[in-house]
Amino acid sequence: MPGTDEAAEAITAAVVDSFRDTPDPRLRELLQGLVRHLHDYVREVRPTTQEWEHAVDYLTAVGQTCDPTRQEFILLSDVLGVSTLVETVNERGGGTESTVLGPFHVVESPRRASGDSVALMGAGTPCVVSLRVTSADGSPLAAASVDVWQCTEDGFYDVQQPDVQPRGNGRGLFRTDHEGRLWFRTVVPSHYPIPTDGPVGRLLLATGRHPYRPAHIHFIVEADGHRPLTTHMFVADSPYQDSDAVFAVKESLVVDFAQVDDADKARAYQVTAPFRMAEFDIVVEPEPEPEPKPEPTEDAW
């Protein structure tokens, strides 16, 4: 009878081989790689049957916590650093650095025009955000779509407080002008804790980790012929810059929200002085040219 290690290796080999006829080669690669690494993990740490059952129960609880306004699996991916890792390994180095989507993005933000306010409640430190979207070669991208969402000055997203905040507060879907520019009015967001009332919160508590994220504004940028970009703009003086609970801070994304006392400038931006202003250039990478298909040879006919 083979030894335990040999039997374990045989199980892995059999499961990997079970996917050999998967028609899609990329799906085959993903599944076989997952099996190899997951089986290696089991062989390395040797979980007991009870521990594995607990893991299954935990993942079940994560799934049961998800609803239309909360994605606990994204949150779990975030606190394990996987979301940031996936974004990082897919970067090509020619544009603004990407970072995590987070659990509070909604499919449809309200459409807004440049100069509109996304802050619908009228409280908090007034802020103006000025963006410029360009391609990797520096050319401006007109009519680029910029999806914006952020928390309030108290650290809550609209979907977390449906009885307090109007739906769409802190959100907006904008288009850039012919120079690739847009601006909007808002309030300076706060640092905040990620939700801790579910399975991910229990994980953080059990491991002695804090749940806080530094203050930031989210963006998804899309432009014809370019790769979509999901990124943040982090408020430079925010706490937790060096210990983001989801490992998403990148130095290039930290932006100074400077105080402006000029009353004339405030009037031009339709805010009151003093206010904070942040300027952020976003560079998106062109989609690669499709590889030309080889010309058929005589043998192909």
Rank of each mutant, 00 (worst) to 15 (best):
H232E: 08
S252Q: 14
E179C: 13
P199E: 04
R181L: 06
R209D: 10
L253S: 08
C151L: 02
H226E: 09
D163R: 15
G138M: 01
P199R: 10
A248V: 06
P228D: 04
Y192E: 04
P199A: 12
Q165R: 10
S238G: 12
T186G: 07
R209E: 14
L229A: 03
G180D: 07
L141S: 12
T186L: 05
Q160I: 07
D158H: 10
V148W: 10
Y192I: 01
V246R: 11
G168M: 10
H210W: 11
R185Y: 09
Y157H: 14
H210N: 13
Q150I: 06
N169H: 15
G168Q: 14
E222Q: 15
D237T: 15
T207L: 06
G180I: 08
K250E: 11
L141H: 13
D244H: 05
A215R: 09
F174A: 07
G138T: 09
A223C: 12
P162V: 09
D244L: 03
G138P: 04
T176H: 04
Q161K: 15
H216S: 11
I220L: 15
S135T: 01
A248R: 07
R185E: 11
R227D: 13
V159E: 06
Q150G: 11
P214N: 05
P239Q: 03
H232W: 08
D224C: 06
P189H: 11
P199H: 12
V200Q: 03
F219R: 09
Q241N: 02
G170R: 00
F174N: 04
L182P: 08
R213T: 14
D137Y: 07
V164R: 15
P140T: 12
D197F: 09
V164S: 15
G180N: 03
R185S: 02
Q150N: 03
G198M: 05
L205N: 05
F247M: 14
V164H: 14
T231C: 13
T231V: 04
E179T: 14
L204W: 04
P214W: 01
A223S: 14
L229I: 13
V164P: 02
P239E: 01
A206S: 14
P189R: 07
V235I: 12
R209P: 04
S139P: 00
Q165Y: 02
P140H: 11
R185C: 08
D137P: 09
